[in-house]
């Protein structure tokens, strides 16, 4: 599935929610099913700054695509990072770098989870794109 197709899928899921409570329930469920990071990667250098809760993000490149794993001590934050992993994980650096993330406004994450320091949504996207940029720069990925 392309990133664009995943976006359409997410938009369609979110459009079925009637109120904010359903949206949060969904994010909480997503949080609970987050692909867990290996404990050895839960280190300070993998922490994303700018979040009120702690978020560890780890990336690896396998066969030309980046695989992200993450964890957070807050469940809603886990849900948000899981949403982003679903979006980006398994894609090439180029695909990740060219992905548009404006759809997050359309699904109401802007209303209810404004991309400020408190939830670090933008910090997470930035960090994922930075990893993509770094792998791209390496050309022959590790």
């Amino acid at each position: 599935m392309t990133i664009k197709e995943t976006i359409e899928e997410i938009i369609s899921e979110f459009s079925s929610f009637d109120d904010w409570m359903e949206k949060y329930n969904y994010l909480i469920d997503m949080g609970k099913s987050l692909p867990m990071i290996d404990d050895k990667y839960k280190i300070d250098s993998n922490l994303i700054t700018g979040c009120q809760s702690r978020v560890w993000l780890h990336s690896e490149i396998k066969d030309g695509v980046i695989v992200f794993t993450a964890d957070s001590d807050a469940v809603i934050t886990k849900g948000i990072v899981n949403l982003l992993i679903r979006l980006f994980s398994g894609h090439t650096p180029d695909e990740i770098l060219s992905a548009e993330t404006e759809f997050l406004d359309a699904i109401g994450l802007k209303d209810h989870l404004s991309p400020t320091r408190s939830n670090g949504l933008l910090s997470m996207i930035k960090q994922m794109k930075l990893y993509a940029l770094a792998y791209k720069a390496q050309e022959k990925p590790v």
Binding site: Q52, S53, A74, V75, I76, T77, S118, N119
Partner: peptide
């Protein structure tokens, strides 16, 4: 329950 989760709700 993390304070961020509680505060958000």
């Amino acid at each position: 329950i993390h304070f961020f989760d509680a505060g958000t709700i």
